[in-house]
Amino acid sequence: MFKIVRREEMSDGTVILNEIEAPLIAKKALPGQFVILKANEEGERIPLTMAETDPEKGTITIIYMVVGKSTAVFRDLEIGDGFQDVIGPLGKATHLEKVGKVICVGGGTGVAVLHPITRGLKEVGNDVTCIIGARTKDLLIIEEKMKAASHDLRVCTDDGSYGHHGFVTDVMKEILDEGETKLVVAIGPVPMMKAVSNITKEYDVETMVSLNPIMVDGTGMCGGCRVTIGGKTKFACVDGPEFDGHQVDYDELMLRLNAYREEEEKCHSDYCTIRDAK
């Protein structure tokens, strides 16, 4: 069992942080890599990119939004409980290199994934501006951490309750207009990554995105996570999860993420009904 040693709720309880004992993975994991977690015997294998690792303490941290039954089961695990299985580190690590001016754009729980990458890009000597966004102020996560990980943090909310009133892409455009930007890293909901990539393409700025398609094994065995990159099929689990944002077929990815939508919704609501009845 992989024990939970810390648990936090964010975004009005819709986003959960779990710090988990996994010493072998913590020792090996690099920014950008993911793990697969399975709560119990009947559980589903869920891929999540790590938000943080502590090799000394032997722990990894994941931050996820509760969207279906599996993440609802995760949410109900308390400190001292554990995941039956955690597998990793999987996927390729982020290529961290000094290129100059970098913009890191994060939305939703993508901000958590963006955190170690932002910090890594700053550590190798880049000038990093970070833009994070949420629908409203209460849904923002790890703002302080992102501030520390970057040189300059900009916050956006769709409803104007905090920071810039509008989308992350508005702020990104302003910075791109200043010139000199060498790299954009965008991690968040697929429509956000698509919008960012469309803009950076106009500015001809290299863009990296991290994809989270449906997976089973995470080791290249099943091909469930196939994505189209530059017209070619790639497996996000072993060829990614990071890809050139200008080459990704986002529309296909969005459709494929809906493969089990009906099953997920039914399964999740049944789970909640049963749990609430208790």
Binding site: E42, E44, R45, V73, V216, D217, M221, E263, C267
Partner: peptide
């Protein structure tokens, strides 16, 4: 590989008794 892994390893043939569809 994916179809059989879902059915066999993840026992998805028992869905929704198990969580893997």
């Amino acid at each position: 590989n994916e179809y059989l892994t879902r059915a066999n390893l993840m026992k998805a043939y028992k869905y929704p008794e198990v969580d893997t569809p």
